[in-house]
Each structure stands twice: as C-alpha cells, then as structure tokens.
Design a protein around this nucleic acid. Structure first.
Lengths: 184, 184
DNA sequence: GTCTATACACCGATAGAC
DNA sequence: GTCTATCGGTGTATAGAC
C-alpha cells in the first residue's frame, strides 16, 4: 500500500467525520496503520494528514474537473463530463464535500484561504466555458456560481433526506441551465 | 438568565463549532456556567444539550418560518416573510445551518431522523404555498425542494467565499423563482 | 444552583526496541 | 516502517461541600 492509497483512505475518514470528528484512532482503523506509523508518514500529525488530504483532493479536482473544463470540445460536452466526474467523486451525493466540511469552525480556520481559492478556481473555470459558449461575462460568472451553489445544496439535501435524487437531478440539468439562451 | 437564554447561547456554539467541535469548555465559556452547573441543567450532558438545541431551533423554525408559510396572505408575501426571517436566522448567511452540521458523521447519526423530518416539513410547507398559488403539485414540490437546496448551497458558498452575496442573492430571487408561471 | 475537586477515557504526540 | 509503551493534556462526567 503506497502513500497515495493511504491518503485516499484518510480522505474518506475526513469526509465522513469532519475535521474535529476525525481522530487518529479512526484513521488508524481505516488505514490499518498504527499511531506511530502514521506519525512516521506524517510527522506533523493530524494537521499534516489534513493538509495531505486537501492536497490530494485539490490535485484530483484539478485533473478531473478543472482540466476537462479548460480542455477542447463542445461546452455542453465538457459540462457533462464534469457532471460525470462529480457523480463519481461524491458517490451520487452520498459523500459530503470537503470544502463544506473544512469550512466549519471559526471563520479564520486553518484552511480557509485554500478552500476559498479552490472554490473560486472551480467557478472561474466554469464561467470560462460559458463565455466561450457566447454568454456575457457577468452572466457567465453568475451562472457558474449558481451551478456550484446548487451542487453544494444538493449534497446537503441528499445527506439529510437520505436520497440521491436531489443530487442526481441537479447534475442532470446542469448543462441545460448553464447554457440556456440569455433572455434579458 | 433563564433556560431559554442559556440554550440560545449553546445554540450559537454548536452552530459555530459543529457537534464534535463543541466542548463543554466552550459551552461553559459561552454561557458563563461552570461544568457542574451545566450538568445540573442538562443531566445527560452534551447529548442533552444538543437535543435542547435542536428542540429550540425546531420550535423557532416552526413559529417563524413554517407558521407564516401556512398563514393567510398572498403567497408572494408569505415567501418574502420567510426570506426575511431566514436572513435574520442565518445572519445574512454567516451562520451555518444546524441541519447541515448535525448531518455529518455516520449516516445513522443520532439526530438524522429528526433532521430529515424538519427538512421535509419545511419543503412541504413551501410546496403548499405554491399549490395554493396555482402551481401543480409535482411542480410545487420540486420547486420547493429547489428553493431549500439553493438556500443550503448559498450558506456553504457564503461561508467559503467569505461573502454574503450568494445568500442575499438567493433570498432576493426566491419568490420570483418559486412563483414563476409554469412553462412546460 | 454553583462551586472545587476529581475520576476515567481518549485525544494527539513521542520514545525507543525491533 | 511498524511495534509497544507512555506522556501530558483535554474530553465528558460525577461527587460532595456550600
């Protein structure tokens, strides 16, 4: 089991338990590594594990969500691809979003700035696709923000209502809503 | 300081710190009561405090959000009123939603069923207003769910982006979107 | 009701043998 | 690298005086 596999298992714990709810015991159980081994791989302890988690997710997100958005191909297809990847990433909405989880606690939380940048990068990439599709810049930004907003909201509803329906519905209508002709 | 005031201060702690992040020390600091005093008021400790918090919020929510929705008056006005109350409740989106916070952890969390009921009650009440306004039942339910979804998403974005803009924007467009004429 | 004192478990983290 | 053993600190929870 290499480091990437270990980090992926830790990601799972943080996503399920939140930052405060994630304990070394749970991480130990999830990875099969003892406490001391964990400190061998992550000398700075829990915080370093959280940083590794965030780094892994940021990289995955960049490769699987942002890059396809900036890639070639029809706008609609790129957005559909993002939807597929999101569906995979969030397991039909059953997994919570680390952005939302790590944003809890004090507003000046450890990772706040990093989270802010990630979210903005996502919105920006999405907006760029829309401007490419001929949507005015301010409208594009707005719609992109709305799309991310709906995805985040859908994740909450999916968890609380115990149904993947909201998440799947939002994904289904993503490209249609985003690329709808400008009316006003 | 009566019990209600104490509970309100505890609510604040849970909303800011989440369930796991809320410690008796923080509650003690927020209320001015020592550990032992807290156990006098809530013999079952932290869990009972969380239950009291949820009960308080459920009651506030019922009186300030659900009742007005079921009340008399034009649908648009009732929805606007809900928006005002939400704006007050979430402090322009700066406060997180307890529904989302308490939904973390295992899917079969302590409060899951209660959260589920609260969210469903909200969606149902909203859908009822829409059917009253002449919107077909299935469409009404869908739109109501969408509205709650957008509010939850806006809370996440407002936190992470450090701007109340998304939340305020969502509230502003609530009644227009909900009561828009059916097109299909 | 609130205080001091305290019990006990678990937290994150470290040391040292292997 | 992983183990056992252990540290100091903090968590929840209680007991008993006032």
């Amino acid at each position: 089991m290499d480091r990437s596999e270990v980090v992926q298992r830790i990601v799972k714990v943080f996503r399920q338990q939140g930052y405060e709810g994630t304990t070394l015991s749970r991480i130990s159980a999830a990875t099969g590594l003892g406490r001391a081994s964990l400190y061998h791989h992550f000398p700075n302890g829990k915080q370093e594990m959280a940083e590794a988690v965030l780094e892994y997710v940021a990289q995955w997100f960049g490769e699987n969500i942002l890059m396809p958005l900036r890639d070639q191909g029809k706008p609609a297809e790129r957005i559909e691809l993002m939807g597929d990847r999101l569906n995979q990433f969030y397991d039909c909405g059953r997994y919570a979003c680390l952005l939302a989880i790590f944003a809890l606690g004090e507003p000046d939380h450890l990772f706040h700035q990093q989270l802010n940048q990630m979210l903005n990068a996502w919105i920006d990439s999405l907006a760029m696709v829309l401007t490419e599709a001929g949507i005015p810049a301010n409208q594009a930004r707005q719609r992109a923000e709305d799309a991310v907003l709906e995805i985040q909201g859908a994740l909450v509803l999916t968890r609380v209502l115990d149904s993947t329906e909201p998440f799947e519905r939002v994904l289904q209508h993503l490209s249609l809503k985003l690329l709808a002709p400008v009316t006003c």
